[in-house]
């Protein structure tokens, strides 16, 4: 579904990603684990086109997407949920969803506000509330719902559990699994091994912009050495 091959990227003159190679298969949840500053967020930003790669290739559904504008990539069916939520605080829940709305190319539209409110009942109860007046957990739900309005085939989720109360994070994990059941592929960034373990199929551990480990989530959970070295939980 999503293939990243020897991707390098830099902020200004400081290179952040080095020859990153990873892939997400159709219908699976892959997680990028690593410390703060390891390059996880940069990786997602580069995939969605907010940052131009220096070299390497990104393929989505068989098509090269590196070098495209973010809006073009989004329209191909790749959704992006940023780490700090970035909902439009001036707009209501419904209007936030409207911004995310894109026609599903060649497919029937899968997500409507009504269906999303089934998935996120909280949002359904506050359709006309402005984003500024929502709690952190509700905002996190809204960013995901907003991205789904674009009928993506895959989504990039940047540290969704960061800053959420443990109770809310548990709910979020359930939601992510539900998305998988809907057939979406997910590339997740996380620092929390706990959250990753509860949802992911495969894991990539990155450190200093390099992939240090790739394997199933189960194998990683058993690999004490890698966990201690790069994740130190």
């Amino acid at each position: 579904m999503l293939e990243i091959e020897r991707l390098s990227a830099a902020y200004g003159l400081a290179q952040v990603l080095f020859d990153l190679t990873l892939d997400v298969r159709a219908g699976e949840i892959a997680v990028l684990l690593g410390r703060n500053g390891a390059g996880k967020s940069t990786c997602l930003k580069t995939i969605i086109g907010l940052l131009r790669p220096m070299s390497g290739a990104i393929r989505f559904a068989g098509r090269r997407i590196d070098g495209l504008e973010p809006f073009q990539i989004a329209r191909l069916g790749l959704g992006y949920v940023p780490e700090d939520r970035r909902i439009f605080s001036d707009l209501t829940v419904m209007q936030n969803l409207e911004v995310g709305r894109q026609a599903a190319h060649g497919r029937p539209s899968e997500w409507t506000p009504r269906r999303l409110f089934e998935l996120f009942p909280n949002l359904g109860r506050m359709q006309h509330r402005r984003g500024a007046r929502m709690s952190g957990g509700e905002q996190q739900m809204l960013t995901i719902a907003r991205t789904l309005m674009g009928n993506p085939k895959a989504i990039l989720l940047d540290e969704p559990s960061e800053g959420l109360a443990p109770l809310v994070a548990e709910q979020l994990a359930k939601t992510v699994l539900e998305l998988k059941r809907e057939g979406l592929s997910v590339l997740l960034c996380e620092q929390s091994l706990y959250f990753a373990q509860s949802v992911a199929d495969r894991a990539f551990v990155i450190e200093g912009g390099h992939v240090r480990y790739a394997g199933t989530m189960q194998a990683l959970a058993a690999d004490v050495e890698v966990r201690d070295k790069y994740l130190s939980v």
């Binding site: 410390r35 960061e162 091994l193 994740l231 130190s232």
Partner: peptide, 12 residues
């Protein structure tokens, strides 16, 4: 929130 945005090791 002294450790917001830090890795587990850095937090510790």
């Amino acid at each position: 929130e002294p450790t917001a945005g830090m890795s587990p090791r850095e937090r510790g």
